[in-house]
């Protein structure tokens, strides 16, 4: 029993001794704060971006830990100061890590900005050029189309009006000639056939006054309508000498030409030929047939 009590007392003494020596002592709050600060710094960007600063914090914490372990009581003021310093070194390390990371982020963002700006600038220039080109093409096309359209419309309208007017006048002229002429569209052109009996006295080649009046209308209509060439053919029936007929038919054709030229038609575009009795259009055996064969034909080519 004595032995047991003695052992208990010894154990109690050991425990007290341990407490007295600080073996179970609670670390000061400053040191605890320094440990936490260092742990936080280690878990943050300082490990990657500020390793030297983190190492300094580690050393400061080590000094504080050693000072506390060596003699918590005797070195308390120094331990507290070292812990204080260690905490601030750890906080500073964390801040340096964040600063370095922020700077790196900023550099990256600046690079992206420059890249984007350059891209935007090039895109803008390119797009602007494309848009301008497109606009230019569109505007040119629009202007061209409009001009063409206006021109075409104006020309068409003018042409239509001119044609209508010319046709009207020609129709009127031909209508007025109806009693002495007929108009036919043939492969060789528009053929206006003038009855010889109305144009000339028998055996003569001077135009009768009424024929001149009618031919004036024809000349006016032809001038307005325009033409490339007119061939005036003089024809006779088969009676009499062929040479006489040829001469007469030529002179009659020439008389018609002279009259048309006197009314302003271009002489160089008009050819007068005498074909005599070579091209009858009817029988020369009957008076009506011969009357039909005595004629002047105007072949108009547009």
């Amino acid at each position: 029993m004595k032995m047991h009590t003695a052992r208990f007392a010894y154990a109690g003494c050991l425990a007290l001794a341990a407490l007295a020596c600080g073996g179970k002592a609670i670390p000061p709050p400053e040191l605890v704060a320094a440990r936490h600060a260092y742990e936080d710094a280690s878990a943050g960007p300082a490990t990657e971006y500020a390793p030297a600063s983190l190492d300094t914090a580690k050393q400061a914490l080590g000094e504080a830990e050693n000072a506390w372990k060596e003699d918590p009581k005797a070195k308390e003021p120094e331990t507290l100061t070292l812990a204080y310093i260690a905490e601030r070194r750890a906080l500073a390390s964390a801040a340096m890590g964040e600063a370095a990371k922020a700077r790196k982020d900023r550099i990256k963002l600046d690079e992206e900005y420059m890249e984007l700006q350059a891209k935007k600038a090039s895109m803008t220039a390119e797009e602007l050029k494309r848009v301008r080109d497109r606009l230019q093409i569109v505007s040119q096309k629009a202007a061209s189309s409009e001009a063409d359209l206006k021109k075409t419309e104006a020309e068409l309208a003018k042409e239509r009006a001119a044609r209508a007017e010319a046709e009207k006048k020609l129709t009127a002229a031909v209508a007025s000639l109806a009693e002495m002429a007929s108009v036919k569209e043939e492969a060789r052109g528009m053929v206006i056939t003038l009855n010889g009996a109305v144009l000339f006295t028998t055996g003569k080649y001077e135009l009768l006054p009424i024929a001149k009046t009618k031919l004036d209308d024809v000349a006016k209509a032809l001038q307005e309508q325009g033409f490339k060439k007119i061939v005036i053919e003089g024809h006779t029936d088969s009676r009499g000498k062929a040479s006489d007929n040829d001469l007469l038919s030529e002179r009659r054709a020439q008389s018609v030409k002279d009259h048309l030229v006197s009314r302003g038609l271009d002489s160089s575009k008009i050819q007068a030929v005498g074909l005599g009795a070579s091209r009858p259009i009817d029988s020369n055996d009957t008076p009506d047939g011969r009357a039909s064969n005595r004629r002047v034909e105007l072949i108009v080519n547009n």
Binding site: Y84, A92, A95, A99, R103, Y113
Partner: peptide
């Protein structure tokens, strides 16, 4: 202790400035 405080002050200032610059760069982009 004063030296440690001053160094921490500088580190915090650098951090704040760097973060501010990064935020501005982000805003700009």
């Amino acid at each position: 202790e004063a030296e440690a405080d001053a160094e921490l002050a500088l580190a915090l200032a650098l951090k704040e400035q760097a973060k501010k610059d990064a935020e501005q760069a982000l805003k700009r982009i």
